[in-house]
Computed example of a mutant assay.
Amino acid sequence: MPELPSVEDLMSRNPVTVDADQSLKFALKTMRKRKVNRLPVTERVSEDRKELVGILTVLDAALAVADAMFGDRSPSRIKVSEVMSSPVITISPGATVLDAAQTMLVHGVSGLPVLDGDRLVGMITKTDLLELVRSEDYVALHMVKDPITVSAGTSLLHARRLMFEENAKVLPVVERERLVGLLTDRTLALELARLREKSPKGKFRSALKRARVDDVMRTPISVRTDYGLVDAAELIVRKRVPGVPVVNYQDEVVGVITKTDLLHLLVEELEAAG
């Protein structure tokens, strides 16, 4: 069997970072501009060195922006250090892609900062690993059946709660059993931050209760049950989404296939090949 690629072979080098004392607004703006869903968080420990102290994801941001503990504070007045996840699960550049995939699945994370000693040298994500999927199976064999869905009129507050409670990063938007849109954790986080920032003091909660899924949902993206897994993986990467709904030939939503589902499959393939 050929030697497995290393993390260093697939990782993104010189990852975008954010300082722990920066604002959540700045972090979200950076995520939007650089088209990333997570930022390693650093803290200066000397004049010429920064240390990795946490990681911030769009889902962290979505939860924080609507959290009552922050009261009327807007994202510009919330520090990254108050929201980030810490300690950070990391990996070394010499580890294999199988090590990376297993670590992500065990810890329930979608990306790993890559440390050479205590120096941050890269990031490896589920997206990076999807290019290794080679299975010729159909999507129907690996999708999550009967997925959680929302309607276009569902409140964003309820959608946020569903994402948190069910650890769902993508929610199909369905009307009369037909797919009409898609809500992702990234779209939700950016909209909640926008709402919080523009709402007058004391008015955010009422604005949040009025906000609906159809205010922000994406144009629907889907695959059919007989799509190949490689095609599904390529679509997920190209559209920059955590997963896609699966529809039958009546355009009814019957499942969801996500990066996590594909990563489980990749681990099985790599372990079997070894």
Rank of each mutant, 00 (worst) to 15 (best):
residue 75 P to Y: 07
residue 206 S to L: 10
residue 157 L to I: 06
residue 103 T to K: 13
residue 251 D to R: 02
residue 56 L to D: 04
residue 105 L to D: 10
residue 263 L to W: 04
residue 243 G to H: 01
residue 12 S to C: 11
residue 55 I to W: 03
residue 272 A to K: 12
residue 171 L to H: 06
residue 271 E to F: 05
residue 29 K to W: 09
residue 28 L to A: 09
residue 1 M to A: 08
residue 194 R to Q: 13
residue 212 R to L: 02
residue 158 H to S: 12
residue 258 T to Q: 00
residue 103 T to M: 14
residue 239 K to G: 09
residue 51 E to C: 14
residue 81 S to P: 03
residue 242 P to E: 10
residue 19 D to Q: 13
residue 219 T to F: 15
residue 7 V to P: 01
residue 50 K to Y: 15
residue 200 P to T: 06
residue 271 E to N: 09
residue 106 V to A: 15
residue 40 P to M: 11
residue 31 M to H: 05
residue 237 V to Y: 13
residue 75 P to L: 10
residue 35 K to M: 05
residue 84 M to S: 07
residue 19 D to C: 04
residue 135 S to E: 12
residue 96 T to W: 00
residue 150 V to R: 03
residue 120 L to W: 04
residue 30 T to S: 13
residue 151 S to I: 09
residue 270 L to G: 03
residue 103 T to R: 10
residue 158 H to Q: 12
residue 251 D to G: 01
residue 50 K to V: 15
residue 99 D to A: 02
residue 240 R to V: 12
residue 76 S to I: 14
residue 66 A to E: 08
residue 63 L to S: 10
residue 128 D to L: 07
residue 21 D to R: 11
residue 249 Y to N: 06
residue 233 A to H: 05
residue 152 A to D: 13
residue 72 D to L: 08
residue 224 R to C: 10
residue 114 V to C: 12
residue 25 K to P: 04
residue 130 L to H: 05
residue 2 P to R: 10
residue 205 R to T: 13
residue 38 R to F: 04
residue 8 E to T: 04
residue 109 V to D: 11
residue 233 A to Q: 14
residue 97 V to M: 04
residue 130 L to N: 04
residue 19 D to W: 06
residue 49 R to G: 03
residue 187 T to M: 05
residue 182 L to E: 01
residue 133 V to L: 14
residue 189 A to S: 07
residue 197 E to D: 09
residue 125 T to F: 08
residue 212 R to D: 00
residue 72 D to V: 04
residue 202 G to H: 11
residue 127 T to E: 11
residue 226 D to K: 15
residue 66 A to I: 07
residue 175 E to M: 03
residue 132 L to G: 02
residue 221 I to C: 06
residue 259 K to C: 04
residue 136 E to C: 10
residue 150 V to F: 11
residue 15 P to Q: 11
residue 113 P to L: 12
residue 199 S to M: 03
residue 2 P to V: 14
residue 76 S to C: 12
residue 146 D to W: 10
residue 121 V to K: 10
residue 129 L to T: 07
